[in-house]
């Protein structure tokens, strides 16, 4: 089943992804069994008890409690899927890894219709933001007087990650609700104005070839206006050193925004 679903799903490039896909596969097993089971029964019943073949209906019909067992069965399986898998996974999903695992931290600010990505830069501290400073060249309203801001790296629709290094992203929005979706990472989080929600995951595959199949993207999953359908960004997962190279090459806010 997992394989079967996989033909349709995007490749799975995150560390937690396979667990989600396996759970998905298990749920679909349950669905398939129920559907096929009842389906076969259904077709047989229609054939066997059509008025032509069975002109006199039986007042009492089925006497056994067979259905009660199937219902109980469904309930049991659901409990297992829920308590055994879904809830623990959600716990993992909502609990950010400790600083000791020196995660790659960044802030993502959605706007109609683009993704602003802010890396804290070498000092590892996000610079101050102030909406009064927002301009077309400074979409985040970074306050360049703040020393922490100067070295921040700000990109537009261009997400760079390091393979096998946990990523911690603070997701928010400037205007309306968007939804930050990384199909290949099995990651999605609504970007809600006025709230900064922290998510995390660990990419385990790289896509440096840039080949057609290796095009990974940020998608917007929540209706956010007329540009919703084209609100996408690109994502690159680098090996350790190419990522260093990129960091070095990326211009700090000071130069990219200027003051």
């Amino acid at each position: 089943m997992e394989k079967f679903l996989a033909q349709y799903m995007p490749i799975d490039a995150s560390e937690h992804g396979p667990y989600l896909d396996r759970l998905s596969a298990n749920v679909h097993w349950l669905m398939l069994v129920l559907f096929v089971g009842w389906g076969l029964y259904f077709l047989y019943a229609l054939w066997r008890f059509s008025a032509r073949r069975n002109p006199k209906a039986s007042y009492h019909g089925v006497q056994s409690h067979f259905s009660t067992y199937t219902e109980a069965g469904v309930a049991v399986v659901e409990v297992i899927l829920l308590v055994g898998f879904s809830i623990p996974m959600w716990y993992r999903w909502t609990h950010v890894p400790p600083a000791s695992s020196h995660p790659l931290e960044m802030r993502i600010v959605a706007e109609q219709f683009a993704w602003n990505i802010q890396y804290p830069g070498p000092d590892g501290v996000f610079g101050r933001r102030d909406i009064k400073l927002v301009t077309s060249s400074n979409p985040l309203g970074l306050d360049l007087k703040d020393p922490h801001a100067k070295d921040d790296i700000v990109t537009l629709n261009d997400l760079h990650l390091e393979v096998n290094r946990p990523v911690v992203i603070h997701v928010t929005s400037k205007d309306v609700i968007h939804s930050f979706k990384l199909p290949v990472m099995r990651v999605e989080q609504d970007a809600i104005p006025g709230e900064e929600i922290t998510i995390h995951f660990t990419p385990v595959l790289t896509n440096e070839s840039g080949a057609e199949g290796d095009k990974w993207e940020i998608a917007c999953a929540q209706l956010c206006g007329l540009g919703h359908y084209r609100m996408r960004g690109q994502m690159f997962v680098h090996s350790k050193d190419t990522f260093k190279k990129w960091l070095a090459s990326a211009p700090p806010a000071q130069t990219s925004i200027g003051s």
């Binding site: 019943a45 229609l46 008890f49 059509s50 069975n54 039986s58 019909g61 219902e71 469904v74």
Partner: peptide, 20 residues
């Protein structure tokens, strides 16, 4: 989801023994 399962199952089983 369970009550829906119950209702649907009952409807399925109602077919059994009928003169459809």
């Amino acid at each position: 989801s369970i009550p829906s399962v119950i209702i649907l199952s009952s409807l399925f089983i109602s077919l059994w023994g009928g003169a459809i």
